[in-house]
Computed example of a mutant assay.
Amino acid sequence: MTIKAIVIPVLIAGAVLTTNMASAEDGLENYRNRFEALPHLPPIPADNSLTEEKIELGNMLFFEPRISSSGVISCATCHNPALGWADRIPRAVGHDGQIGERNTPTVLNSGFLGSQFWDGRAADLEAQALGPIEAPVEMAMDLEMALDRLVGFELYQEKFGEAYPNQEDPITDDNLAHALAAFQRTLNTPNSPFDRYLHGDQEAISEQAKDGMVAFVDNGCIACHRGSNFTDSQFHAIQVPGSTDLGRYVVTEEESDKYRFRTPTLRNVAVTYPYMNNGATETLEEAVAIMGQEMLGREFDNDTIGDITAFLNTLTGEMPEFEVPALP
């Protein structure tokens, strides 16, 4: 994926959507104004600018299984593009068949998050990138050994050199993390039906989905699931059925952080099942009912659950373009 490929559709979409703005009048303007459309790109940190070379390298590394100790697990193993860039199983299966403690979050739109992982232990994508490589339950790879493996391939020497041209020895852990983060910042899903609705296409979503939008606001779901990525990136206490996970407490050891988890994005939630931190909730309808009970103290009736579910289905955006790389 090139920078040009990202930017040009933004300009075209902006022109078209501006033209359509005036046509959207269905009496729900006060509700629409509570939401934000998803930008095509998240904020880009000053120390990790997006370049075509860095994105291409990050793409290769994302699919590279030889940076795992077994040589068969890559980032894409658990973040499968065909499965909403997640894995659609309750909890991830990693090195030697070990099962992790938590459900795999999608990497889609992850650059918009205020922190990474369910417990927020990484501040950004750069801080997140190396964690799974070293985690014993995931890729279980010593980082120096991973770098040594990459050094052994002439193509990686070439690609790291192109991405970091002013460095004598560019195959470093920092550059590995930055390349992975750069690639992940291109994995965004703008132009969902709801985005088109916000931009003025009155027919982009159904009447039931509009009813769901109203219910989403009136019942208070928007208090935590807000902003363009439908998350406040804050930590809230919840004990979903079957979970004993202490959440953010594992990071801070603050009593007040027990059972607190970062609010997950609702973007593409219809294709990133199962749900909750333990992945024990199989359907979106179940998830809506549980959140009503646990977070809002409400027992939603079937019509409300159906309406909110219809609304959430409109948050599935256009999947990012990428190439499955030819690895050395």
Rank of each mutant, 00 (worst) to 15 (best):
P9T: 04
V10S: 10
V10E: 15
L11Q: 14
L11K: 10
L11R: 09
L11W: 15
L11P: 07
I12E: 09
I12W: 07
A13V: 08
A13L: 02
A13P: 08
G14M: 00
A15F: 12
A15E: 12
A15P: 09
A15I: 13
V16C: 06
V16N: 08
V16P: 07
L17D: 15
L17P: 09
T18Q: 13
T18H: 13
T18L: 12
T19Q: 13
T19P: 09
N20T: 11
N20W: 09
N20V: 11
N20H: 08
N20I: 14
N20E: 13
N20A: 11
M21H: 09
M21T: 13
A22C: 11
A22T: 13
S23I: 10
S23P: 07
S23M: 15
S23K: 15
A24G: 11
A24Q: 14
A24S: 06
E25H: 13
D26F: 05
D26S: 06
D26M: 01
D26P: 08
G27D: 11
G27E: 05
G27A: 03
G27N: 05
L28N: 09
L28Q: 05
E29S: 13
E29W: 06
E29P: 08
E29V: 05
E29Y: 07
N30W: 07
N30M: 06
N30S: 15
Y31R: 05
Y31D: 08
Y31N: 04
Y31V: 10
Y31C: 05
R32P: 09
N33H: 12
N33T: 12
R34M: 13
F35K: 02
F35H: 06
F35N: 05
F35R: 02
F35E: 04
E36F: 09
E36P: 07
A37F: 02
A37S: 08
A37Q: 04
L38E: 04
L38G: 05
L38I: 01
L38Y: 06
L38Q: 03
L38V: 07
L38P: 07
L38D: 08
P39F: 07
P39I: 03
P39Q: 06
P39Y: 09
H40R: 07
H40N: 12
H40E: 11
H40L: 06
H40K: 08
L41F: 04
L41Q: 04
L41G: 02
L41N: 00
L41W: 00
P42G: 05
P42S: 00
P43F: 01
P43G: 06
P43A: 02
P43K: 00
P43N: 06
I44W: 03
I44M: 03
I44R: 01
P45G: 01
P45D: 01
P45W: 01
P45T: 03
P45K: 02
P45Q: 04
P45C: 01
P45A: 03
A46V: 10
A46F: 14
N48D: 05
N48A: 03
S49W: 10
S49I: 12
S49Q: 15
S49F: 10
S49A: 14
L50W: 01
L50K: 01
T51A: 00
T51I: 03
T51R: 00
T51P: 02
